[in-house]
Design a protein around this nucleic acid. Structure first.
Length: 557
RNA sequence: CUCCCCGUAGUUCAACGGACAGAAUGGGGGCCUUCUAAGCCCUAGAUGGGGGUUCGAUUCCUCCCGGGGAGACCA
């Protein structure tokens, strides 16, 4: 509304087409919204920005702006808008009515979106790197859903290829009972043999072919049982993490499709043969050459990716397709997309690659090949144990509940530590700080929510009902933050940046805890019903925000 | 060698070209006979370096230094 009024009222003063911004100043003394219109316009007009701002201000004051209490001009020429408390208080009522819908928007209404993430490989461990992809992908899915889109979650898993052959080779040479732990070790053994032993390498290559054409019954059996065991294990982890996929795609099915696409491209001279392989020359688009069909005649990951793009569109016709992966794939993915663009421009156009940083240990990059990766379960178990210990000390909840709640806290802790930073950057994974439940952490947010719930429960017992009949003289930071939540969600959506929500929740939690420490919420005074309403609004918003991050909000902890 | 990404308090992270660069953690000092101390309050501390564009630069451009990723049959 402010933007529109500025456009209307400023036309006479400012040159047309000035690009101005409306933002929320960090410091509340500069108002609730602020515009740089005068600064931008004054430059084009060759005038003093402060003078321009003053002129604009008086024009704007004549316009009717609901909820804007006053307008001020500040150096060097900002125009600041101050909202009346009424706006914030009405919003509290709005939150209490909207409940789990509060913060949602309809910017993507009617859109169908497929989002691929996690992508673990059967026969290998589900390690903390997958945890990163899963946390980010799930959060983005929820943010997009909250913006009105229909979202389908997809998981693309590498059940074919040399890594599987390595694991099978390891299984054949170790002969142990089939467990996920054994699979992990079998892969490590196979990988080492592949690197160090010429004969083993040949055997593994042979196994790879046999897996592809299913010509060996012993290998088929090991393959089928190992694959199922891996996938079942992944399913347990997804449940623990709160993810449910709508579609599963496998490399074993995308390969053939990819081959066909490359053949088409070859006919149209978009691909070419080189050194016995089929390659795509990315150089024409400022990229590099990549192999799509290797000299053995097998499709590489590149070709499979093309097949996947088409299969996705057929299974679930969509408007946008997001692919969340680690950023080591970025350059590779540009080439694949370029190739797809030349053959199927309409499909390529809908795809957006969202790369995230890598999880690394303070000692450097971890390698699942060497068996030094930390598995998701072992990390979660460790976090859970420490949450459990803390709960047993404080005795705030009954013993039967502790186990389940500790697990939710563990998941919250790790997810938050991933989502609090911008997704493109690497995370230096430090055990100490990630295990911490204090300060800038998931459990801090969960704790704040649980605390609010506890207060509300007591309010119920004292028969104090939420009401905004009697309001305070002046609203606090809490009301203003609550009002900003829908805008934060929109920004997280347009920028694919869950960390904005994380930052917001920390600010909200801090504001509420500050309030909690200073004021008594439940007492016999007139202020109690409003404070209860405020607490309820905080708990709703906190819960919705945590949901967007894929973090559950226990009512007790 | 080429291309891409990143350098912010001791450490781990924020900051939509804006107004005094925010947190957390660690350090120092306080706060529980009343709603969950996984909390609250006070305190110290930072934009790798040089140019440039701009009324205004952590943010954009350029060079240098440092770290990471990718670069033909792994993904």
């Amino acid at each position: 509304m402010i933007r529109e009024r500025i456009r209307e009222k400023i036309q006479k003063i400012a040159p047309r087409g000035v690009d101005f911004s409306i933002e929320r100043p960090e410091r509340s003394e500069f108002g609730d919204y602020s515009s740089n219109i005068a600064l931008v316009a004054a430059k084009k007009m060759g005038k003093n920005p402060l003078e321009v701002a003053k002129e604009m201000k008086s024009n704007l004051e004549k316009a009717k702006m609901n909820g804007v209490e006053r307008i001020e001009v500040a150096d060097p020429g900002f125009i600041n808008f101050y909202l009346s408390d009424k706006v914030f208080i009405e919003n509290i009522v709005n939150i209490l009515n909207a409940k789990e819908k509060y913060g949602s928007n309809e910017t993507l209404k009617g859109k169908k979106i497929m989002i691929e993430y996690t992508d673990p490989n059967p026969f290998k461990e589900f390690h903390i790197g997958h945890l990163m992809s899963n946390s980010i992908g799930e959060a983005l899915s929820r943010i997009i859903e909250f913006s009105g889109a229909e979202v389908k979650r997809a998981n693309y898993q590498g059940d074919a290829g040399i890594h599987v052959a390595k694991a099978i080779w390891g299984m054949m040479h170790m002969k142990e009972n089939l467990t996920t732990d054994f699979l992990g070790r079998a892969y490590v053994k196979g990988d080492r043999a592949y690197e160090e032993d010429e004969a083993a390498r040949k055997e593994i290559t042979e196994i790879n072919k046999k897996i592809f054409d299913r010509s060996d019954s012993q290998i088929n059996q090991l393959y089928d049982r190992g694959r199922k065991l891996s996938l079942d294990q992944f399913e347990k982890i997804y449940q623990r993490l709160g993810t449910k996929f709508d579609y599963y795609f496998f490399e074993s099915e995308t390969g053939k499709r990819g081959e066909k696409i490359v053949e088409e491209g070859l006919k149209k001279d978009m691909f070419e043969k080189s050194e016995g392989a089929v390659v795509f020359r990315g150089e024409k688009a400022g990229l590099h050459t990549r192999v799509f069909i290797n000299s053995e005649g097998l499709p590489t990951y590149e070709a499979k990716e093309l097949g996947l793009a088409l299969i996705k569109q057929e299974k679930y016709p969509h408007d946008f397709s997001f692919v969340v992966t680690g950023n080591e794939i970025t350059e590779y993915y540009k080439v694949v997309l370029e190739a797809l663009k030349q053959l199927y421009p309409d499909i390529a156009q809908k795809i957006k690659h969202i790369p995230h940083g890598m999880l690394r240990l303070p000692t450097g990059k971890m390698s699942s090949r060497k068996g030094e990766a930390i598995t998701a379960d072992s990390l979660l178990d460790e976090l859970k144990a420490s949450a459990l210990k803390k709960m047993q000390e404080s005795e705030t909840i009954v013993a039967q509940e502790q186990e389940a709640v500790a697990d939710r806290i563990a998941v919250g802790a790790i997810k938050y530590s991933i989502l609090k930073q911008s997704i493109g950057k690497d995370i230096i994974f430090d055990f100490e700080t990630s295990l911490s439940f204090e300060g800038d952490s998931g459990p801090y947010l969960q704790y704040t929510h649980a605390r609010a719930c506890s207060v509300l429960k007591k309010a119920g017992e004292a028969t104090i009902t939420a009401s905004t009949k009697t309001v305070p003289e002046k609203v606090t930071e809490i009301e203003k933050l609550l009002y900003a939540f829908p805008e934060v969600v929109e920004r997280a959506n347009t920028e694919y940046a869950p960390n904005h929500i994380a930052t917001f929740l920390i600010n909200l939690a801090r504001a509420f805890n500050h309030f909690y420490a200073r004021e008594r919420i439940i007492d016999s005074g007139d202020a109690a019903p409003y404070r209860v309403a405020l607490t309820q609004a905080v708990s709703i918003t906190m819960k919705n925000g945590l949901w967007l991050l894929g973090i559950s909000a226990p009512e007790r902890m």
